[in-house]
Design a protein around this nucleic acid. Structure first.
Lengths: 223, 223
DNA sequence: GCAAAAACCGACAAGCTTGTTTGTTATCGT
DNA sequence: ACGATAACAAACAAGCTTGTCGGTTTTTGC
């Protein structure tokens, strides 16, 4: 893992899941928590936030509900951890993908879009998006989600530019490209069941092309 | 209302709400149903699909739950009507907006994007989007939502091109532009609480610009 | 070893949601 | 005018969800 990844991941790494050198109980606890978080991700993806009951999560995780409530006293505690965990894992996947690209593929073919698109098709991002949309109409969820989401966007913007050095000279354009890619692809994800797959591929390519033009300065904005 | 509007709206007009020349009971019934639908829209926007209980809708509508279940025997019946109703009203707003544009504004300044964006900030679209995302994880809702959504996309694509005659020569590009605008703006709507307003405005302009380039053939796709 | 703490389990009360059912008032057709 | 029908109201049962509580097993510190 190189410098770039270290910085980003260090900022976003979830707490309470890194006790690898601790006692037996600590490690057992961490393992159980990860099992719970993975189960929660599955449930969020399949059933959505409001239908993801603590009962269901416990069943999928294969432990009793009482045991789960020992690790996460309330549903909010659990969801807060899910947010951190999914953000961390998605960033991990995204960075791995971008780092694996050759410079030419990344710059000329806008392959970063493809990586971003793929990272949005993961279980983790499905769960994250589910929370994002649910937070818009659930005050309790918004209270724990929005601060984390804003922090995440900030970290992503500030650090990920190291993975795209070709944007260094144009920070505003980079910020726009980042938001733009996220918005377009998230909109695409939402309509995945409605639109034909071919249309989705074309759309994805179009987004990549327009970002390429933005970078080359052929498609800008009035000041 | 001109020809264009007539065609589109005729295809999408909800059933059971057009009994204006009927008996007193009929008109009363229609009025009550509209009251219920408007209440449902408010609830969906504010609380999301899963928290929009029949109890809550009845309270907001100002009638008893029993009375509501007389008009809509089940929650699914009600939601199905909400889908048709919101699609109809959004299309109405959108068409009114586009018709009010001068040709120059529509073609050169891509003002259609601004209209589309504004139509997505309405109560009706918020409710529709809420149903769209909820349908992705709720099989019962998906059963009534997806068929209607696909029909809506088809009607929109087939008929709305009359409002944008400058695209007539390029049906593929038009289809792409349509999907693209919807995806990007819907993604923008979803992140509305997370991103700064200024960034949202810039993003909206960028989407308009890239569509303008697509129309001028300066930004196409490989076959 | 042994007490304390942590991991884990099962059951409970309180509240909410949905659809059904029974009853009341107002309007329609003849 | 009068029976039928529609609009509306209220109460009920069945099921689900959340958080709390007492109890059991396993690990840790001494």
């Amino acid at each position: 893992m190189d410098d770039i990844s270290m910085r980003v991941l260090a900022q976003l790494e979830p707490e309470g899941l890194d006790a690898e050198g601790q006692s037996w109980q600590q490690r057992k606890s961490v393992q159980t928590r990860i099992t719970i978080l993975e189960a929660a991700i599955d449930c969020l993806q399949k059933h959505g936030y409001r239908s993801t009951t603590t009962q269901l999560i416990a069943e999928v995780a294969g432990i009793s509900r009482g045991a789960m409530l020992h690790h996460y006293a309330t549903k909010q505690d659990l969801i807060a951890s899910v947010i951190d965990y999914t953000v961390y894992k998605r960033m991990e996947v995204f960075l791995d993908g971008v780092r694996a690209l050759k410079d030419s593929a990344r710059i000329d073919e806008m392959a970063g879009i493809e990586i971003s698109w793929r990272s949005m098709l993961t279980r983790e991002f499905s769960a994250y998006l589910e929370l994002a949309v649910a937070a818009r109409t659930d005050p309790d969820l918004a209270a724990i989600f929005l601060p984390r989401a804003r922090r995440y966007v900030k970290s992503e913007l500030a650090e990920l530019i190291r993975a795209f050095p070709e944007w260094t000279e144009d920070p505003d354009g980079y910020a726009l490209a980042m938001d733009y890619a996220n918005a377009a692809l998230e909109g695409l994800v939402i309509n995945r069941d409605i639109w034909a797959e071919r249309d989705q591929r074309i759309l994805c390519q179009f987004v990549g092309q327009s970002i390429a033009m933005l970078r080359r300065g052929e498609l800008g904005l009035p000041p």
